[in-house]
Amino acid sequence: MAIDCLGSLPALRHLDDAARDILARQAELVTLKAGTVLFRPGDLCANFLIVLEGSVRVHLLSELGREIVLYRVGPGSTCILTTSCLIGSECYSAEGVTETAVSAVALPKAAFDMLITRSGVFRDFVFRSFGARLTDLMKLVSEVAFGRIECRLAEALVKHAPGGGVIPLTHQALATELGTAREVVSRQLKDFEHRGLVGLGRGRLEVLDPGGLRYLATAAPG
C-alpha cells in the first residue's frame, strides 16, 4: 500500500492517525517507465507526486529549441513546480520527464489540500522539500547569469566522474544540463583536452585530471 511506502520516509514517520487515514484512502502507488512525460507547459496539476525510487528531470525548452535542466526530483523528494501549481491553482510552466523507471506515490489535489491544512508533519515535509529545491533553482539562476562556463563545465564533469573515468554523456546532454549551446560545450571541452584535463574521442568523453577540474570549478573569476 502507498501509506506503507511513505512510512519508510523519515520525514513522514510521525504522521497522526487522521493524516494516515487520508493517505490510506486516497494515495496511490504508481510505477512509471523511463521517458514518461509527467507534465508539459500549460497542463493543469491534478496530483502531488512523492518519488520513492528513480529520477524525474524538470526542464525548460525555448521556442528556438534550447533546453535547460532546472532540477531533478529523486527518492524522498517532491517537485517544487507541482507544489507551486497546486497551491496557486496555476498551470505548469515547464516539462517533467522520468529519466529512469520511477516508483512514486500520487496524491489527488483534494487530499493534498486537506493534509496541508490539517497535518503539521505533512506540511513541514512539503515545504522543506520546496525550500531545498528553491535553493537549488536559485543557485542555477546565479550560475547561468553570472558563472563562467569553464568553471560550470568543470564542476559538472567532476560531479559525474569525481574519481575520473569515462562519462556517458554527449556534448548536447552537458549543454542541456548547463543551459548553454552544444557548440559552447564542445569548444570548452576541446580547450580542456589541450590542457590535459579530459580525453576526447568519437562519442567518448573521459575525465583525466579530476583534481585539475575540481580546482578550476572553484576558481574565482579573473
Rank of each mutant, 00 (worst) to 15 (best):
A11M: 04
A19T: 05
A19P: 11
L23D: 12
R25H: 11
Q26V: 10
Q26T: 15
Q26D: 15
E28G: 02
T36H: 02
T36Q: 07
L38H: 01
F39K: 04
R40H: 11
R40F: 03
P41H: 06
G42I: 06
D43C: 01
D43M: 05
L44R: 13
C45E: 14
F48M: 05
I50H: 05
I50D: 08
R57A: 02
V58Q: 02
H59S: 11
L64P: 00
G65P: 06
E67V: 13
P75F: 00
P75R: 06
T78E: 05
T78H: 01
I80W: 06
L81V: 02
C85Q: 03
L86N: 09
G88C: 15
E90N: 06
C91T: 10
A104N: 15
V105K: 07
V105N: 08
L107Y: 12
A110I: 11
A111G: 13
T117M: 08
V121K: 03
R123V: 07
D124G: 01
R128D: 14
S129Y: 00
F130C: 05
F130Y: 13
L134I: 10
L137T: 11
M138D: 15
K139H: 10
L140S: 05
V141A: 01
V141F: 08
S142C: 00
S142M: 00
S142F: 02
E143H: 07
V144W: 07
V144L: 07
V144K: 09
A145H: 09
A145T: 06
G147M: 01
E150K: 00
E150C: 01
A156E: 13
A156W: 10
L157E: 04
